[in-house]
Amino acid sequence: MGSIQQIIFMVLSVVALASALGVVLSKNPVTSVLCLIITFFAIAGHYIMMNAQFLAVVHIIVYAGAIMVLFLYVLMLMNLNAELEPQKRNWLKYAGAISGGALLVVLVAALRDASMPALSPEANEIGLIHNLGLALFKQYVVPFEVSSILFLSAMIGAVVIGRKD
């Protein structure tokens, strides 16, 4: 099975990289959003390759299914077109390139010496829902509950901002 997994990995990686480039390079914002959705699907495919089906499906439900719909919603209502988009100033482009490059340097420097043990998909079953649930509710129950309070406060914040008066 090794060769097939390698082929699928290659295909998914190429799709992910190409569509991620599409997000940045596309002139039309709606096309960018669609490219981002394809990227999410490719990454979900990678999760499935690592035997983390639950993570893959939740990734699609939350990001591709909910957040990107809201992105698309806003973009469609604003009706941004390539012609109407204001031309960005030149110094903004340079600033973007420099800060992006700096991030790349930091990431490469941080990951250069990091040990990355190879993952054997068959032996690794933490991504399956049963094991994930046990880990979340036994080992990591405090961080899990604290993050739920974070979500609650974000929701209350949205309601307070959106209230009319």
């Binding site: 089906q53 639950f54 499906v57 699609i60 299914g65 829902i129």
Partner: peptide, 12 residues
């Protein structure tokens, strides 16, 4: 083993 979640993903 995640049948219901798969349906949710597709519906969304």
């Amino acid at each position: 083993n995640i049948g219901i979640l798969y349906i949710f993903a597709v519906v969304s």
